[in-house]
């Protein structure tokens, strides 16, 4: 026969056992982040995030449904939808202007920031850049084209209708290309009049709204030469595709992957720890070799085939040109209207 004491004791243990997972869950912090999909997302979900969760005894909720900024805009600043925002640099500047993200991430908050190249924390960056791609020219190797050496090669009359770039209002690579036209044919990246004039001269040109579409157009031969980031071409290495990437002599534009923390985050320490984790040499190597991104951490040693092509030395990094997104975003509406009219028809 079960005594009352035994029954009460057993009940208490059973109740505690049943409640344990929910108590544990309540104590486990959740870090809300944004991250890309595709190969990057696969690596993050399979390796990077589980290891981070294990080490920091937390759960990570990763949003891969782009665009992130409108969602962050719609959430309260004191209880933001994300703790860590991962976007390209132009969007970080928009968020910073609206007070949605912090200004700088310093070594005090994330010690590995001390080891990054200067471009990753330059005055053109809010937050900290963890990787960059080089925006240059992708081209078909089976069309009898010489490897481009200058951005001006895209204007070659032979490429009429077979050159490609982006719908400028919706794509930052297109915006970078526009600024580069100002540098090539005018007084500098901010010479918009020269850029508009040069853009007019590039017609007929095929314009797409995202880089994946440009990759598809290059692979199908729909364009013979187009503006693209190096990783969008290098990822096809070993697949016997007749495409290659060229870094123009005038320099390559930076397409930075930037992390930043929202000021209203309730788990700021964890957010900084995540950024620090993403800057660790082993995390950087894994992702850099997985998706062909140039790492921000100077201490990363990539395998030879990646090291040869990516921006992994001070000399190579010096070819990077970082646009002033604060300046561009302030004029974006006017620029959008102007280029829409230029490129229509």
């Amino acid at each position: 026969m079960i005594s009352r004491r035994t029954l009460l004791g057993t009940s208490a243990v059973a109740a505690a056992t049943l409640a344990a997972p929910s108590i544990l869950h309540a104590q486990t912090k959740t870090l809300k982040i944004t991250t890309w999909g595709g190969k990057w997302g696969e690596i993050m979900k399979a390796t990077v995030l589980p290891a981070f969760e294990k080490e920091f005894k937390c759960t990570v909720s990763a949003d891969q449904a782009f665009p992130y900024v409108p969602k962050l805009q719609a959430s309260p600043k004191n209880d933001p939808l994300y703790d860590v925002l991962h976007t390209n640099s132009n969007e970080q500047w928009n968020c910073f202007t609206e007070g949605l993200v912090m200004n700088k991430i310093t070594p005090k908050e994330a010690p590995n920031v001390a080891d990054v190249y200067p471009w990753a924390v330059s005055d053109k960056i809010v937050g900290v850049a963890i990787f960059t791609s080089a925006i240059g020219l992708g081209f078909r190797t089976d069309k009898g084209l010489a490897k481009p050496t200058s951005w001006k090669d895209l204007a070659d009359p032979k490429l009429a209708g077979a050159r490609g770039s982006y719908i400028i209002p919706v794509n930052s690579l297109g915006q970078c290309h526009l600024m580069m036209l100002g540098k090539l044919y005018g007084k500098g990246l901010q010479d918009l009049d020269a850029a508009y004039k040069a853009l007019e001269q590039l017609k007929p040109i095929k314009l797409v709204d995202f880089t994946g579409q440009m990759e598809k157009m290059l692979l199908s031969g729909e364009v013979s030469m187009g503006v693209i980031h190096d990783s969008g071409v290098y990822r096809y290495e070993g697949q016997n595709q007749p495409v290659d990437f060229a870094s123009p002599s005038e320099g390559v534009m930076a397409l930075e992957q930037v992390l930043n923390v929202t000021p209203g985050s309730k788990v700021k320490e964890l957010a900084f720890a995540y950024i620090d984790y993403m800057l660790r040499p082993e995390t950087q190597k894994l992702l850099a070799e997985g998706v062909w991104y140039s790492p921000a951490n100077k201490k990363v040693k990539l395998d030879a085939k990646y090291d040869e092509k990516l921006l992994t030395t001070e000399a190579k990094v010096a070819t990077l040109i970082q646009p002033d997104w604060k300046w561009y975003n302030a004029r974006k509406e006017d620029i959008d209207a102007r280029v829409t009219k230029i490129l229509k028809g």
Binding site: P67, P70, A74, N94, I167, V170, L207, E333, D336, T340
Partner: peptide, 26 residues
């Protein structure tokens, strides 16, 4: 229209998406 229209076609839904998604002006 976004995929088939290129730069020749600009419709209001495209402009709306542009304003929300890239100009961040809801």
């Amino acid at each position: 229209p976004s995929l088939m229209g290129g730069t020749d076609v600009l419709t209001l839904p495209m402009l709306i998406a542009q304003q929300v998604g890239t100009s961040f002006n809801p």
